[in-house]
Design a protein around this nucleic acid. Structure first.
Lengths: 350, 350
DNA sequence: GTGAAAGCGCTAACAA
DNA sequence: TTGTTAGCGCTTTCAC
């Protein structure tokens, strides 16, 4: 049985083609200085021998691995599925490969070590809680890094996020316009900028309308915890609170759980008894059984921005770090009282 | 700004620690022959300099990249999300990293080239249509490979799949037991073993009950096409067919689309007017808005088997290729007439 | 345009 | 246990 990578090296090819090893290298380097004739000889010999350049050896010398590490968590959330898929596409189109690190528990340091050992040319941090730590270390080491859907507190780090604050306001405004006053918020992870900013916008818009308090519970961006959160919200009737008329849920994945729980466990009608609004416009939000009214993040363009920013850095740009804020918009479906779909896309399956 | 990976090499560390370069290497090699004293000196110097071994250089010489390539498609299907997540965990627990290749269009050859160039120690093919081609080439090159949820026709390739045939029979039996006679099947991708085997089992079980024909349409494992398929099935009333009383859908993701379309577009009640049964037991199947009765694949243990098989091969086992067939079972929920949940897990959110 | 030689950072024999 | 030496397969000056 032949060796891995066929065990054929560039010097084998050189010998067969009757040229030097350098010629072989040039034949496989786009834009290198080599005659068509020589290249043809090399390519012939190469394919005859089943030669494939060894990317590892090349990396060692060029110091470019063509590998981008993507650190992600919450793969439970369908929204990030499409994000990763698209990152993979765009990256490959530019000749990069994707090393995926799924970070469930918070072993930030271990990750970093691994990334660095593999000489990743760049890092994309997809919505992970470890973002700040990792991002900073990468930055210090001179490794290009972009945060997706997180904002870095300290620093000079590129990031792409949607306008979570505006989204929060928009959610509140939507609920307010529907005539709701007793509203509630189900948070994601408390220590994430996404959840915090969405809540902040929500709160500010309510305040502007003279509403200074709202009920809240925490769903940790998990389906399971969101169910518990909504039950807590609707069954615990202490502290002078009335039952909420409307709930803003920090993301669609949790909102689905909320909808299910409200309808099938608490026997409440949505939007008749209670309105629900989510965030993301993930695929299930458009499914006909839910038709969730939600704040859309422009996932596609956010990913494009992210990859673009990263590639620019990897190609050597020394531009000041940017913080791209993508616009959000309301997708009207059927879970907020008094609103019905106006745009045709609201009726599709997203 | 410091270089990537700090630019510190083992010989720098050696110099500072006052030892040889080999000593540094040994200090970072578990189980190497080195005194505690020397190791301590090395480690001290290393951390002082911020040294990290260069995995690329190591790979070049050991010919072990510790990288496993995972080729996947249909990330649209939530079922594979959790699969990839779990693969990532198990792999890392064994010290391997995951290079993710999302294969939408069928560029099999290009993939292979890339895999091989990166000296991947092993390859996992997650349910992709290119499986056979890739698997065979890997096999020939001596690269360990395992197929997840695909069966290789020609050959000596390890694979892990669920018992799709038995699942198909079970689906048919379930529908038959509910009293249905006019049944239909919505296929996934025609050229996949999963869809074919599920259909074959379905067909055989029907035949055994004296039912020799059933209607069928193709959903290509896509949400969108599944909707079209079910509409075709229920609206086209030619060829002497009656409207189906029950539909077996080749996976849950499509079944969700079928449920939505049946209920909200065709205005049919499930299971009153028509029964639906899926395959996978993916997360949305357990969501309360769907409560899809389905054939469960034991995802966890399938992934465990897959990773286990791969690691064994990578560690040098020359055992004959295995084809692991995982058992399936019926999860009774609420989309098949006359059946109601008997087990408590059917009520959870999976 | 081409070849010779040097060396990327590391590990693996082999001696000591 | 430790150091010395020789590469892993490739790219890159630098002459020619």
């Amino acid at each position: 049985m032949s060796n891995k990578s066929s065990g054929v090296t560039s010097s084998d090819v050189a010998r067969v083609a009757g040229v030097s090893q350098s010629a072989v290298s040039r034949a496989f380097t786009p834009g290198a200085s080599i005659s068509d004739h020589t290249r043809a000889r090399v390519l012939a010999a190469a394919s005859k021998l089943g030669y494939r350049p060894n990317a590892i050896a090349r990396t060692l010398i060029t110091r470019q691995s063509q590998i981008v590490a993507v650190v992600a968590s919450y793969l439970e959330n369908p929204f990030y599925l499409s994000v990763i898929e698209q990152i993979s596409h765009l990256l490959r189109k530019e000749g990069y490969h994707l090393l995926l690190l799924v970070s469930d528990t918070g072993e930030a340091d271990e990750f970093l070590m691994q990334l660095m050992q593999y000489q990743a040319d760049g890092v994309i941090l997809v919505s992970t809680t470890l973002s700040s730590t990792i991002a900073q270390t990468c930055e210090q080491m001179g490794v290009p890094v972009v945060l997706f859907n997180r904002i870095s507190k300290h620093g000079n780090v590129n990031s792409v996020a949607s306008d979570n604050y505006a989204g929060g306001r928009l959610a509140a405004r939507t609920l307010l316009d529907a005539g709701h006053r007793d509203v509630a918020f189900i948070a994601g992870l408390e220590n994430t900028s996404t959840s915090r900013d969405r809540e902040l916008g929500f709160k500010d818009e309510l305040s502007a309308a003279g509403i200074t308090r709202y009920q809240r519970a925490v769903g940790h961006y998990s389906f399971h915890d969101a169910r518990a959160a909504v039950i807590e919200l609707f069954e615990r009737r202490s502290g002078g609170w009335k039952r909420p008329e409307a709930v803003f849920v920090a993301n669609d994945h949790m909102a689905i759980a909320v909808l299910d729980t409200l309808r099938h466990e608490l026997r409440l009608r949505v939007p008749h008894d209670v309105s629900v609004i989510g965030f993301d416009n993930a695929a299930p939000a458009g499914w006909l059984a839910y038709q969730l009214t939600t704040i859309e993040q422009p996932a596609r363009s956010m990913v494009e921005n992210t990859v673009d920013l990263l590639i620019r850095q990897m190609r050597g740009s020394r531009a000041k770090a940017q913080a791209v804020i993508a616009p959000v918009r309301l997708i009207v479906r059927e879970t907020v009282r008094g609103l019905s779909p106006t745009t045709e896309e609201a009726a599709t399956c997203a």
